[in-house]
């Protein structure tokens, strides 16, 4: 029983990083209605920037964190300008494939800068743990959870309490009508994209600090985990993104404990598939709108 609860705690902690990744994804997808496959690789670029500063200049955790977030946001802006802003309505699939092409580009750029397979990344709080009775919680995990909940709340408040949030929700509701009431849609989209990539950067920094290493493969990992958590939680829902992430984390930890590491991912995918088939809207989402990235729809 202690194991079960300890696993659940660990799952929630790990899941909070998935939730953070899903949060950025959700903002991009919610506003654009398009899939940014380069989301993870943009974060990876931020991670590399942080590592370079750490290796070459001995930067501390705060500077590294700032560099990861900034690097992710800049890479995100690059992706938005190239793959999303120039695409006409109805070219959602072109945006998606284009963002995939840029993924390849970013991955190779990272390898050119740092050619080895892995590089060290500075830890946040090395191995320190807190004890609650029979349970243990790592401090860096706890920071991750706090950041996830805090950022989710910040996103929610921004969406529902600010002028910028009003603009974003108007765009989500009806892009043409948003233009008609005088919202600068392109600028709002670019800002949302940059902010979402920055949120991803926070997630990236925390995960990398826990792993204490960075590889080019981190991009794919971040895209996949964010995507899965977002789909489980429900497309376009901020609370859904976080809860989806936590649930994914818990499922993974328990699967690994009871069935071994290979079953961890297998069971996560089985759950995802089951969710999509039985309840495509996820935990918090509405029924799927059919033309999200279907290629032919205008």
């Amino acid at each position: 029983m202690v194991d079960f609860f300890q696993n659940t705690i660990d799952g929630v902690m790990i899941g909070s990083s998935y939730g953070l990744l899903a949060l950025g994804f959700t903002v991009i997808f919610g506003v654009m209605r398009r899939l940014n496959l380069s989301y993870g690789p943009s974060i990876m670029i931020g991670g590399y920037l942080g590592t370079v500063l750490y290796l070459n200049h001995g930067a501390g955790p705060l500077v590294v964190a700032g560099a990861v977030v900034l690097g992710a946001a800049i890479a995100g802006v690059y992706v938005e300008r190239l793959c999303f802003a120039p695409m006409k309505a109805g070219a959602g699939i072109a945006s998606m494939v284009s963002s995939f092409a840029i993924w390849m580009q970013l991955e190779q750029a990272a390898i050119l800068v740092l050619p080895r397979h892995t590089y060290p990344f500075p830890p946040l709080a090395t191995g320190a743990t807190l004890e609650f009775g029979p349970f243990f919680v790592r401090i860096d995990h706890l920071i991750m959870l706090v950041c996830a909940l805090g950022l989710a709340a910040a996103v929610q408040v921004t969406l529902y309490r600010t002028r910028f949030g009003l603009a974003l929700r108007a765009i989500i509701g009806h892009p043409v009508a948003a233009h008609l009431v005088g919202i600068n849609v392109r600028r709002a989209m670019l800002l949302a994209f940059a902010a979402a990539s920055a949120i991803g950067g926070v997630a990236g920094f925390l995960v990398l600090a826990v792993d204490q290493q960075v590889t080019p493969m981190f991009g794919m990992w971040a895209t996949l985990k964010g995507l899965i958590a977002m789909m489980i939680g429900g497309l376009g829902s901020v609370p859904g993104a976080v809860v989806g992430g936590l649930l994914l984390g818990v499922i993974e930890t328990h699967s690994q404990w009871y069935f071994g590491p290979q079953f961890r991912d297998l069971i996560a995918y089985v759950v995802l598939f089951a969710f999509l088939v039985a309840r495509p809207g996820g935990l918090f989402g509405r029924a799927p709108s059919p033309d999200i990235t279907t290629p032919q729809k205008a």
Binding site: L166, H174, A177, L180
Partner: peptide, 11 residues
């Protein structure tokens, strides 16, 4: 005021 109104449905 556009054709088909285009109000923001979720607001």
């Amino acid at each position: 005021v556009p054709e088909n109104r285009l109000v923001f449905p979720q607001m």
